[in-house]
């Protein structure tokens, strides 16, 4: 196994562990911290795919800004077991059953319909993820979707300001 493969399996294990701990942790603040670990692992994967811009923006936007706001809100809400509505055991059972069915459906769909051999990501190859190439592609081939996405962001921002405004 080369270094790349060792890193790949390490990051995969870290991402899965983090994702499981997000669900298992009793304390919502701990869940948020494990989610940050997941983001770090995913950023590591992006770097392995040579998508440096995506990796660092994932850290800046998700780990650096959005999760801080998450923490902020969770700390202000003061969640604990007494104030949270408790679900009955039957609700939990049906939740697990439907979630499991959905997962098995996805897995069977992916296994049956996509040729996995040809879709394997190439590690450490390709330079589409470098800023220069990404910027050129975004502003030439995909300029209309890109602009539409920015208008979406703008409208979301205006909406947030309108909601947040005291009248």
């Amino acid at each position: 196994m080369g270094t790349t493969q060792i890193l790949f399996w390490f990051l995969t294990a870290l991402a899965l562990l983090g994702a499981i701990m997000v669900l298992v942790s009793k304390n919502p603040v701990h869940s948020v911290l494990w989610l940050i670990v997941v983001f770090f692992a995913i950023s590591g994967h992006y770097i392995l795919l040579n998508a440096q811009f995506l990796a660092i923006v994932n850290l800046i936007v998700y780990a650096g800004a959005i999760m801080v706001l998450f923490l902020f809100v969770i700390m202000l809400m003061n969640l604990n077991a007494e104030t949270e509505p408790q679900k009955s055991i039957w609700m939990k059972f049906f939740g697990v059953a439907t979630g499991g069915l959905l997962l098995s459906f996805f897995i069977s769909f992916i296994v049956s319909s996509i040729d996995l051999k040809n879709k394997t990501a190439q590690l450490k190859e390709g330079d589409v993820g470098l800023i220069k190439n990404l910027g050129k592609v975004l502003f030439s081939d995909y300029v209309i979707p890109f602009e539409i996405a920015s208008i979406l962001f703008l409208s979301a921002m205006v909406g947030a300001v309108v909601i947040g405004k005291k009248d």
């Binding site: 440096q52 811009f53 660092i56 800046i60 780990a63 650096g64």
Partner: peptide, 14 residues
Amino acid sequence: LNIGVLFFLAMSSL
């Protein structure tokens, strides 16, 4: 790094 400035911003936001 060729993303030096962004790396600095990411670390300082952490």
